[in-house]
Design a protein around this nucleic acid. Structure first.
Lengths: 137, 137
DNA sequence: GCGGCAAGTGTAATAACATAACATATCACG
DNA sequence: CGTGATATGTTATGTTATTACACTTGCCGC
């Protein structure tokens, strides 16, 4: 079994490097973490990383975690997800679990409809401890 | 009608100033925005603001908006809210609408229970346009 | 009163995250 | 070819947040 994800072939060099770094990591990386990992590959400035991240996030290949100022590769290997995605972030080990819940999505849609609010994007992040870390405590 | 909220009397000077600044604002303020507003009152360093914000957030008198790196006063004047709070943030006018939804809360609890994940806190932020700004567009 | 502790404050320095501005390069396509 | 769109490289700067340390204030027990 391949641990690494299959990666679209039409990424630019920098985008490929950045996505590779995210795919290799067990936990979220800040833009500067990524930069440090990619200095050996010739990257030198934050902007090179931020630009690649923008494109990857735009295409759904990576996600930004707002409460961490950090990024993860999309957990869904082949097709980037549609709709609302929630993240459970473990404060113990740093791992992130990505999931979708159509009931929540529908519920938010309902609220927005009632208020006349036009949703553009939604951030949903749960902070806490994963099962393993609770057990270890 | 009082536009300002009633404010607990046991706040320290800095906490009171910071909460006052948030209550006066129509939209979220960054810590540095707050600092600028309070220079006339003698505040000089970011830390003075961040320390006050920490306490206010801890007590539920203010909320941090992760996707904005900014803060708002709690919309609920008298008792700070329990449980999950969601925010709808208008990209047009900057206004923030705060609401709770017990179905969503229950749904997240269910997911967490099934996974053995111990939730400590949850961030939920909708970005988009409010009714007025959609109409104006 | 006064010793001692907890919480709050003031200040400077620095760390961590993110973007502006500008020049150059690469590539699809007419 | 040439031209426009996209990507890149680089420097400088802007914005958000914390560390470290010294001092003050209020409170409680003795």
């Amino acid at each position: 079994m391949a641990h690494s994800h299959d990666v679209p072939t039409d990424l630019t060099r920098n985008q490929g490097l950045v996505l590779g770094a995210l795919n290799h990591s067990e936990s979220p990386l800040s833009a500067y973490d990524i930069l440090d990992k990619l200095r050996a590959d010739g990257l030198r400035a934050p902007l090179q990383v931020y630009r690649a991240l923008d494109k990857l996030v735009e295409r759904g290949l990576a996600h930004r975690l707002e409460s961490l100022n950090a990024f993860v590769a999309c957990a869904d290997e082949h097709c980037h997800r549609k709709g609302l995605i929630a993240f459970a972030i473990c404060e113990g080990c740093g791992k992130v679990d990505e999931f979708a819940d159509s009931v929540i999505e529908e519920r938010l849609g309902h609220w927005a409809g009632a208020k006349g609010f036009k949703v553009e994007r939604t951030t949903m992040e749960i902070r806490g401890k994963c099962e393993a870390c609770v057990a270890a405590a």
